[in-house]
Amino acid sequence: MNDILSRRGFLRSSALSLIPLQAFDVVQSLARGQQGDSLAGRGATGTLRDPSVIGRPRRPTDPKENDREIQAIEQQLACNCGCTLDVFTCRTTDFTCTYSPELHREVLALRDDGKTAREILDTFVAKYGEKALMAPKPQGFNLWGYLLPGVAVGGAAVILAAVLRRREAATTNATAESSPPQVAASPEELERLRHALEEVKD
């Protein structure tokens, strides 16, 4: 029955959960400071005490990984691990993914073969299907995807403008028919009115 919390324990847990949220960081950082000695590696390039807890071993960075063109290509390619990220973001974020580093190597190999960005993207589409691209090509049925929102908003705006114009005309006519004869205000009166309106304008 040790795992049943005492009433005091329950209240303490509840109170802790109500600590202002910023305090969590403070509490955590304090706690971190009290958690044992550092187990640093040995020497300038010493080995780690437990490399298994650090995730998949990494290769040294290839200079091409900072190549803007390579990054731009990879940002147009979807990782196929199911993460919904592009290859560049996945391989530099989700370090447990084994797919994105492999896709990255494919991009580098195609680049080394002298292929252009367009050809690399086409190669990926040929190999993995259209889902390899982060956004579908704007052609065929996909054009609907790109154009429909704009067309819908534009069309609705045109219709709305036409309806409003018709109603405006109807209202103007009705007002003209029903309104009493207009009496012109003097410039002083108009100025007073303008000031008054400015002050009460909502």
């Binding site: 956004a135 579908p136 996909n142």
Partner: peptide
């Protein structure tokens, strides 16, 4: 066919 609709699509449209 399966396609991916990611940030490039949404940025272009929105």
């Amino acid at each position: 066919t399966k396609i991916t609709v990611g940030p490039p699509f949404f940025n272009r449209v929105n």
